[in-house]
Design a binder for these strands. Sequence first.
DNA 1: CTGAAAGCGCTTACAG
DNA 2: CTGAAAGCGCTTACAG
Lengths: 335, 335
Amino acid sequence: MVSIRDISIKCGVSVSTVSKALNGYKDVSEETRRLVLKTAKELGYVPNAHARALKTNRTFTLGILFVDDQNNGLTHLYFSHVLNSFKSEAEENGYNITFIHKRWGKQIITLLQNCKFRGIEGVCIACVEPNDPEVQELAKSDVPVVSIDYIFPGCGCVLSDNRNDMAELVRYVYSMGHRKIAFIHGTDSYVTQQRIEGYVSTLRELGLEVRQEYMLESLYTNPYTTKKATEKLLQLEDRPTCILLPDDVSAFGAIEAIQEAGLKIPDDISIAGYDGVIYSRLISPRLTTVRQDTDKIGREAAKLLIYNIEHPQNPKLEPIIVKGELLTNQSVGLV
Amino acid sequence: MVSIRDISIKCGVSVSTVSKALNGYKDVSEETRRLVLKTAKELGYVPNAHARALKTNRTFTLGILFVDDQNNGLTHLYFSHVLNSFKSEAEENGYNITFIHKRWGKQIITLLQNCKFRGIEGVCIACVEPNDPEVQELAKSDVPVVSIDYIFPGCGCVLSDNRNDMAELVRYVYSMGHRKIAFIHGTDSYVTQQRIEGYVSTLRELGLEVRQEYMLESLYTNPYTTKKATEKLLQLEDRPTCILLPDDVSAFGAIEAIQEAGLKIPDDISIAGYDGVIYSRLISPRLTTVRQDTDKIGREAAKLLIYNIEHPQNPKLEPIIVKGELLTNQSVGLV
DNA sequence: CTGAAAGCGCTTACAG
DNA sequence: CTGAAAGCGCTTACAG
């Protein structure tokens, strides 16, 4: 590897001068600068990020914490889209992306230690169990953190507007004539709570009764559990005319249960998904769903994190709320 | 940040001794070692990876190059699964994962420079345009490279067994009585070539004619182009009884075209996908498809890359071929 | 078993 | 405008 030293020898100037020329300081003569730059190019010089980091304490590296119970953060449709745009935005701003984990060689270390050790300047937390003590420790540390779809006190966050988007969905379903609207929601989380609030408050607002037997829980992105929940709803004496589901993938389970019960969508019963992944509009029946704006969510998260890294004195901590879009389709019929 | 220096002062020993104690060298007395370790813990010492990298020239960091034309490597179902297992395997071996890109601050640099600069020890190339000169430069450089589903001369690679898996699929379709088997394949690539070879050679092996009008091209994971191609096939005078598609997502386009033509799957015509993403088994009609073993592909790629990094003298360069699994289902009917 | 010293590649006051 | 010097935090021959 050619170093600044090699350039200095070849050019007959000091390493200080080479460094200054390379970094665009003004107190270097135009002539010297040109010579240094030319020589650097000839020699194929590449600066050493570690030496620089050691000296300047800056790494321009953002960490991603992206693990969930099923260890499938990256294959999660929603989060992989968010990560994709987070990555683009970060790279466009000259930052690198890396993953945070608990290993250091053969040892297990904490997530915070991993960040410190590697000089990670800020972390985006998504798709993790927020009550994990190590995640808490990280969120409370001096490392800037931005979370997605969850609020850590004292940290920036970007939230998909679940409460209002859900409300809009319920209002739409109501406008189609439905009065018996069930909601199979995911397991407890900030997102789930927001959606339940949106669901419950809108029913009340519309003068509809909130019926406990119409609110069931299943796992996110797991059609098998949704199928079971749907079967329960179908067996009710006074069964719903529309079922709202945790997400588009789990909607497959509902479709299956409904078909096996000999019912047709939307003639006999309506359903709606959530997420708006492309496939939901391809399957038959085409799903009414809420498209979350993953591109914006990821980009806003990256911008916010970088801002907070570069403005440690007055970081932005107010939640950034990103509106989704209602995609109406044939799976919700007129009653 | 507490450094080795702080520990040495607190313990009254030299930094050399602290370093040795911390790194488990044997030439340190048991007593000193214990004192150092205890003090390090008390002080909350975290080593500095950059200082170490500067000295040892090792970063334990693997790069991922994961961009394609549509800039959606991460949201690509197949590749996001591969990445997920690559990441798990790498981390279990004490390596970090980061993404390679072309930026350095405000400057644009080459992919190779990005690797050199950041001390990346090896790169996994997947889901990129292999003819990109910068990718070529990287593959030819002294940075160890492992590619997925593509062969760079002189580099390790992991290949999904497209040729044989495709052959198996064709044989299965044949065994169901089909003799007019069309293949809508993706755009030209190593993977596409392998699948076409598997398709053509198996037809010949089975004594079937290879008909040009049964071989059409569409984009991968793009149902709109597949729909168009399927429509063409349906308009043929002597139309196929089974259509093989580029992947499960694009199969949605075929399903739509077939339904719009008033035909039923599998009664009137059969179809098969490729990839075996979970959703393909959920939609109706349930897709016959080939599940690629993404978990194994990712893990083998990580193992291979790490092996080649740690054995620069005799790296493993023979392709590792990972067999897929035929998933038969109702979308292919008996003729 | 312990420690002084050199050095990895860079940046940055500071003196001239 | 230029350069000598110190130092970021660590590791590692080498001498004792």
